[in-house]
């Protein structure tokens, strides 16, 4: 288990480094359109081959890595933020707050996530910013329930009662005392959410409503490649592997954290 975790962390760290360094590793030339090298197989010159416009896939994947990771992180941070705030308010104040917020959570859970995503994209138009916001805005409900449950069980504990007796404000109690103590499961949820966000992004790209061209993302590279599966296996293979390894790492890490939390 430990080795798996190290590998997972290693992969995620390497990716993050690649994402951050991508702009420095690439020159203007790399990833440029080159009509004399359409759909070439991986070679010394193009490690991952080239696409239908002759662009170097390795360079595109490098850019896509930073795009996809950004999308996933922003979505997850948004989702955690919404989930924590809504869950904490519901749990802490109880009564009408709790009922109406949880009713809202229930309503959100009643809609197919895809319906929400499609409607919002239809209204706002598909672009990278909207994709991040939408994934985040449709995935916070689990976190909210979790935080609410934690807060419910924590709020009658001595240290909270003490804080209250000392006249601490509600906001202070929630964010200094309750939320930090509920963070364990939230972090697990966030790591698993990272994996989910990468998957959702690739699904949106499959449906053509994800990150817009020519900006590459793992998802749209993969779905662009599916049309040429028979001639250019590399166009689906490399993006597919990137997605696969990343989700696998995030899930492995998430599970490890979870079992650590449980024990």
């Amino acid at each position: 288990m430990k080795r798996d975790c190290l590998l997972a962390v290693g992969w995620l760290a390497a990716l993050s480094a690649a994402a951050v360094l991508a702009p420095f590793l690439l020159t203007n030339k790399s990833g440029a359109v080159d009509f004399s090298h359409l759909l070439e197989a991986p070679s010394r010159f193009h490690w991952f081959g080239t696409d239908a416009l002759g662009r170097d896939l390795f360079a595109r994947i490098l850019v896509a890595t930073s795009i996809s990771l950004t999308v996933a992180w922003v979505a997850v941070i948004l989702s955690v933020f919404l989930g924590v705030v809504i869950g904490a308010v519901a749990g802490y104040f109880g009564g009408g707050w709790d009922r109406s917020l949880m009713a809202f959570v229930n309503i959100m859970l009643c809609f197919p996530v895809f319906f929400l995503i499609l409607s919002v994209i239809a209204v706002l138009g598909p672009n990278i910013f909207n994709v991040m916001v939408i994934i985040g805005a449709t995935s916070w409900m689990g976190t909210a329930r979790l935080v609410r449950a934690e807060v419910l069980s924590l709020k009658e504990r001595e240290f909270v009662l003490a804080a209250r007796a000392l006249g601490a404000s509600h906001a202070r109690i929630i964010f200094r005392h309750l939320v930090p103590n509920a963070m364990g499961p939230v972090i697990v949820n966030a790591v698993l959410g990272l994996a989910a966000a990468v998957l959702v992004e690739s699904g949106l790209s499959f449906l053509g409503i994800g990150v817009q061209p020519p900006t590459p993302s793992w998802g749209n590279l993969l779905s662009d490649g599916k049309g040429v599966l028979g001639v250019a296996w590399w166009l689906t293979f490399f993006p597919g592997v990137m997605i696969f390894l990343t989700i696998l790492s995030a899930n492995t890490l998430g599970e490890a954290l979870q079992s650590k939390n449980d024990s």
Binding site: M1, L199, G203, G219, K226, L229, G240, F244, T252, E255
Partner: peptide, 21 residues
């Protein structure tokens, strides 16, 4: 056990349309 867990997790991590194709 470790291998089976890994395989199950791997299955969970593959984008559906890629594995389908």
């Amino acid at each position: 056990d470790r291998w089976l867990t890994f395989l199950a997790l791997a299955g969970f991590s593959v984008p559906t349309f890629w594995i389908s194709l």
